[in-house]
Amino acid sequence: MELLEAIVDGMNYWIFIILMMIGLYAMITKNNLVKKLIGMSIFQTAILLFYISLGVKEGATIPILPHYYAHTSQEEQGNLVGSSDQAHAGKEASSATEGGKEKPSVAHAGSPKIDPNRFTNPLPHVLMLTAIVVGVSTLGVALSITQKLYTEFGTIEENEILDQLKSGDD
């Protein structure tokens, strides 16, 4: 039973390793260039899966701060800060409607209302957004090279292309 729990807890990581090895296997052994690229995409998504799994917490929710959190913490910040000019600025921000835009990032830091354990870690998400876009552009460039190879050699099988190159050398 303990073994089962250990497997279930690290389930994402097992699948991440399996998917990564499937992708690597396809990249190495498949002859067809499109199949190789599908393998490369699977490899990439496996790594994304690993990073997203790192950001998950027990009992946490989506990392979006509701509006009322920002509002209450701002007023508290105005009361808590000792120095007069900052307290004044906080009061001004809470009274003026457009002043609330720049304040929240400062105001959240010291607020006791917001528990970071209730939100998933957004840092891996942001990094992986970049990785998704890089992955799809890599795929696009590789597929365009595949089309060029097809017009040049009339095939997208790697071994046939290599044979043609070899016979061209002689």
Binding site: L48, I52, S53, G55, V56, A60, T61, I62, P63, T120, P124, H125, V126, M128, L129, I132, V133
Partner: peptide, 11 residues
């Protein structure tokens, strides 16, 4: 399901 909605809709 893992709470990464921004990554999910980009994907």
């Amino acid at each position: 399901g893992m709470g990464a909605v921004d990554v999910a809709f980009t994907e």
